[in-house]
Design a binder for these strands. Structure first.
Lengths: 107, 107
DNA sequence: ATGCTATATCGTAAAATTACGATATAAGGA
DNA sequence: TCCTTATATCGTAATTTTACGATATAGCAT
């Protein structure tokens, strides 16, 4: 019974991550962080045509999904990918594969 | 230059997949297919409170994203995950990790 | 305290997505 | 041919998401 509860929690967490990544702006932010390792919020804002408040909201969604981390650094905030979250996501998707637990032949 | 074009294509494909997975109904369909290996369309319809036309549209989105395959089987259609697409998705997400190309220490 | 910079939150209009019923298509069987 | 079954597509109403400006919060100077 406890197992089932945590399965549900796993599903919810996964669905939340995927929903966060389903938006093109948030996807671009993830790509940017993957390429640049870290970014100040204002750098992310500058890389888009959007208002600062909009980007801030998107960052919040990514944060709450466990995909990025924001560390306050003086008056600004430094964002980076959350490697644990991303790795977890990767593992979950891998778990969808029928042959996930045996060796992968040629991929 | 050709490389950049294909990078863009990669990004677009990835964004499309994630967008497809960002919807809770489509996510549930993926989970169902991952658990059951294959499903007839009407089985998927029965597993939701939604109209047949709605489910059909969701399946189309998943198909066009390269996440599922539908094979016509007599008068019905048999759906299953597209292992190539799912594996590709997993690899792309793995590529976001900073240590993706070295050995993973303890994960 | 005042002012400046960087972010976050709130309320709301605009845009996009979703779900539906109706209708079309396609494969078999009588 | 005419039904029946299973699925797909179309047009549109309803819901959800997004983007914005305005405003609040927080840190750090002067």
């Amino acid at each position: 019974m406890l197992k089932e509860k945590s399965l549900e929690t796993t599903e919810l967490r996964l669905a939340k991550m995927l929903k966060a990544l389903g938006n093109p702006v948030r996807f671009e932010i993830m790509e940017m962080l993957a390429n640049r390792q870290t970014c100040m919020t204002y750098e992310i804002v500058q890389s888009t045509p959007l208002a600062q408040s909009t980007v801030s909201q998107h960052l919040k969604v990514l944060r709450e999904a466990g995909l990025v981390r924001g560390e306050v650094e003086g008056p600004a905030t430094c964002y980076c990918l959350d490697p644990d979250g991303v790795r977890w996501l990767k593992d979950q998707i891998e778990g969808w594969l029928p042959d996930c637990c045996s060796g992968s032949p040629d991929a």
